[in-house]
Design a protein around this nucleic acid. Structure first.
Lengths: 331, 331
DNA sequence: CTGAAAGCGCTAACAT
DNA sequence: ATGTTAGCGCTTTCAG
């Protein structure tokens, strides 16, 4: 910057003002400085600028992953989420610092914040760490979590309407004549618990009794669907439908069903969750519950920036939508 | 830091030394300072530290995406790549700044570098921008690109052995008795061009003539496989196998084949590329060429850090491996 | 409208 | 072993 100033025959202060479009600088001077900066391919050093300004226009995005299997990052849903958040951040002129964190502890979630690298943190998924997240919020860390709204929650969440999502999926299956609907998911995760509630609601509304034998606790890993189907078969319980808590689970469940000679959707109807890119290209095309990724990204970013600027941010629930294709059967 | 110094009864310099494990500080003093810092939950401000040190222990990872369709980010392969690079970066104590860039222009690829936010850039895919990348390298930007090695290349690449990959896949199909092997991919992309060369080599080695009608130029988008199969049928050309340049392409091709009553692998054998997570869970399980993501991440990071430290970095090719499952048929 | 000077939070000579 | 001082690259009062 000193160089630019010297060559332009002005002070550094003027260069700074010119490059930041300050109204206090003569239009012609600005023109000259801007031009010169470009020919020298000079860029303001953001690090120094941030230090001076006491901010940094960067937010941390942390994706939990399973320390043991390193599996979590592999769900295409996360890529979608990343795209949504990244897009929203770019729109606001913020950068994105990506880090991964052990899903079981969420240790180090705020490290980029504590060390001043980022102004706030977006966490994808709350996992089993409700209390720990409350503690972070109590410390005043600007934080938005993708997940479910829970009682006694001090932190800000943005999430889909999981209860309705579960209801829509289950009601669809029931409406197509299914009576024995299995549930695949780990209800220790808040979002899954809500989807399970929706599932139960729909069953009861149809006069059906949720059968505990039909609920299989599988984690969000690719082979979850395989395991779930095997477990169901091992239990020897009758079922004519599956509501799986992710498309990945649904897809691998469908493949395992096929391996056992069950036709989808004729013998077993399957509904997934997320509506990932591949869902409509699968065979059979997946009936699934869509989560609005782009809106989600925007909503999370907006809330985080509110917090960063000292404005209070309230949690938010986004609508979910049933996308009817073929795997869920038809009436 | 001033506070810590005051409360510990030492100077800021000592605090700095203590917290950075300098050997020039008394063990007992260090102990006291460290303790105090913890109770005050004080963390060194990395931004200031970086400014002072003239470095920042951050690298930019840029993922090209298609401005029009925003589709590129959606290939699960990229998520895998991101995981590989992220892991390697974490091992070295570097942070990862993620940004997206228009794949057709790669404009702004080095913006995070020019503005001093990152010490170097990793670019996933070279697309059609060989010349532009050469220009960046000439400017001295520390840069590693995931892609193919090309003649007259001034920048550093790390990539799979695409020629061998193409050969392995095609030879496998030929070995299984296929004679009319179609190729799905856009050979304007250097990596795809190499795979095509491998494909051609394998055909010629088997005494077969590559038929231009069997080469379909499809982009890396999910519906590419659909389009490819339709195009093949439209051309009315006979084919008994497809080598697709990504698993996504292979999967959607298989679904489209099914829609037209062709059984995979009996009627048409299909081999994909990448070995994404879902490949082994697909139906039929995908025979595919694996790219070593973890090694790739490590190799790219190592080369980038070399450049950052002023050491020269040479391009590198990683071995690829054919993973035989079912979609490619069997002899 | 422009310049001089102070300071963001930190570290590395250089002293002691 | 510790303290003093200067300065990383920038912005912003405060004077002119």
């Amino acid at each position: 910057m000193a160089d630019v100033a010297r060559l332009a025959g002005v002070s550094m202060a003027t260069v700074s003002r010119a490059l930041n479009n300050s109204p206090l600088v003569n239009a012609e001077t600005r023109q000259r400085v801007t031009e010169l900066a470009r020919t020298l391919s000079y860029r303001i050093n953001i690090g120094a600028q941030n230090l001076r300004l006491g901010q940094n226009r960067t937010v941390g995005v942390v994706m939990p992953f399973d320390e043991a299997t390193r599996q979590h990052l592999s769900d295409p849903f996360f890529l979608g989420m990343l795209g949504g958040v990244g897009g929203a951040l770019a729109e606001r002129g913020f950068d994105m610092l990506l880090s991964r964190v052990d899903a079981d502890a969420l240790d180090g979630t705020t490290q980029p914040y504590d060390s001043g690298r980022v102004n706030g943190v977006i966490l994808i998924g709350q996992w089993r760490c409700h209390d720990r997240l409350n503690a972070l919020a109590a410390r005043g860390v600007p934080l938005v979590v993708w997940g479910a709204q829970l009682p006694q929650q001090a932190y800000c969440t943005v999430g889909g309407d999981n209860v309705t999502g579960g209801e829509l999926a289950t009601r669809h299956l029931i409406g197509n004549g299914r009576r024995r609907v299995a549930f695949f998911g780990d209800i220790n995760l808040p979002e899954v618990a809500h989807r399970f509630r929706g599932y139960s609601n729909a069953l009861k509304a149809a006069g059906l009794d949720p059968d505990p034998l039909l609920r299989v606790s599988v984690p969000f890993v690719p082979h979850g669907g395989h395991d779930g189907v095997r477990e169901l078969l091992r239990r020897g319980v009758a079922f004519d439908a599956i509501f799986a808590c992710s498309d990945l689970l649904a897809m691998t469940a469908i493949n395992e069903l096929r391996a056992h000679g069950r036709v989808v959707p004729d013998d077993v109807a399957v509904v997934g969750y997320d509506d990932i890119e591949l869902a409509c290209h699968f065979h059979p095309p997946l009936t699934t519950v869509r989560q609005p990724l782009v809106d989600a990204g925007r909503a999370m970013v907006a809330r985080l920036l509110d917090q960063i600027d000292g404005r209070p941010a309230t949690s938010m629930q986004l609508p979910t939508q049933l996308i009817i294709r073929e795997s869920g059967g038809s009436a």
